[in-house]
Write a protein that binds this DNA or RNA. Structure first.
Lengths: 197, 197
DNA sequence: CACATTAATGCACACTGTGCAATATTTGCC
DNA sequence: GGCAAATATTGCACAGTGTGCATTAATGTG
């Protein structure tokens, strides 16, 4: 399963990161609206055309790409038979331990979201693929008929996770391992509210 | 409080509806991507410039404008002291009874969402203002410190409501009054999932 | 009817995003 | 190392989006 990351692959990742850095830096300096894709490309040292080879649009470059489950985690989930939410959170733990989280970038995103709240939907939207994957996993347990319910659950989970990312970004003392735990606690708070009928 | 809807006001509402009708009709006929704002304007019998006076963008014209709480409902909520979720759902009942829902338009939207799932985020996004209002109401109960939790709750509620709209649109036998009840039931299903730790 | 207010429109313009063809770089292979 | 295939980058043209501004038309008010 271990891959041989060729030069091209490393460059690709590197360039994607540089573009995101450029986009974040410019947005923080000049405001989100004042930044154009041409400026980002110039700052990142590439052509505008290449920018669009990496990201579909300006917003995607700013929030970057969310991680998604690897095959091993999906297989683990399907084989497991624990409580639904517990297993979903465990899958997320595997995901976050695997991927290398960059607290610096997360901090920049968080600061930008403070000054430009109109970006919040885009931030949560960046978790879309992950959310869809969570819904897919949930459906394997509760049945395809309940897909809308699975998506509701997945939306709550990814929202809580997004909130927790912002907390983690600003709390150096918080370890990446505890992100999922804190998100899980938030979900229990939600459960409490939902019981208030 | 009863207003005198002047000719201008009626025209404004009428034109907004015609634009939405045109946008939906064209998107269903030719596909969302193939429709331009110019085509919508032509179909609605207005100039492209006027189109942008009514809607910020093409997507907004398709999903239309979501309703929001009137002052009376907000005042009622602040005065009430029932359980949080029960009161929020009651506020939504008042909202839906007041506004006139158009099942025909909702059906068109639903059909379009079936053929163009990439519009789903935009559909749920159209409930953004309502969601923010729900969060505002919740904050008056649980305190400003818990705003992220209020937003998580509001997101779950508005998501469930959006799902229920789609059900209602396709079920002639379902009354508008029961929309909130069904959404409430969905939220209890979610609560059940959240308990599976 | 006269006048103020608001809406609709045309036009210019900056920006977004895509397709395509040309050029440059990397990779695998001998 | 050198060569051919695969892949990346780039420039260019172009359709579409969305806004600002000035002009014209419609509506509300007295």
């Amino acid at each position: 399963m271990a891959v041989k990351p060729t030069l091209r692959d490393r460059r690709r990742v590197q360039t994607a990161r540089e573009i995101q850095r450029a986009a974040l830096s410019l947005a923080l300096r000049h405001g989100h609206d004042a930044v154009t894709t041409e400026m980002i490309a110039a700052e990142a040292g590439i052509s505008q055309r290449t920018f669009f080879n990496y990201y579909l649009n300006k917003d995607a470059a700013i929030v970057g790409e969310a991680p998604c489950f690897d095959d091993g985690t999906v297989a683990w989930f399907r084989a497991s038979s624990g409580p639904l939410l517990a297993d979903l959170l465990q899958a997320l733990r595997r995901l976050l331990n695997g991927g290398e989280l960059d607290r610096g970038t997360s901090q920049l995103i968080d600061r930008l979201l403070d000054t430009a709240p109109e970006l919040l939907p885009i931030f949560y939207g960046s978790l879309r693929r992950l959310r869809d994957q969570i819904a897919d996993l949930a459906v394997t347990r509760i049945g395809a008929d309940a897909r809308p319910d699975a998506e509701l659950l997945a939306e709550a989970i990814s929202h809580a996770l997004g909130d927790t990312f912002r907390i983690w970004a600003n709390d150096e003392a918080m370890s990446a391992d505890s992100i999922v735990d804190v998100a899980g606690a938030k979900l229990q708070v939600l459960r409490g509210y939902l019981a208030q009928v």
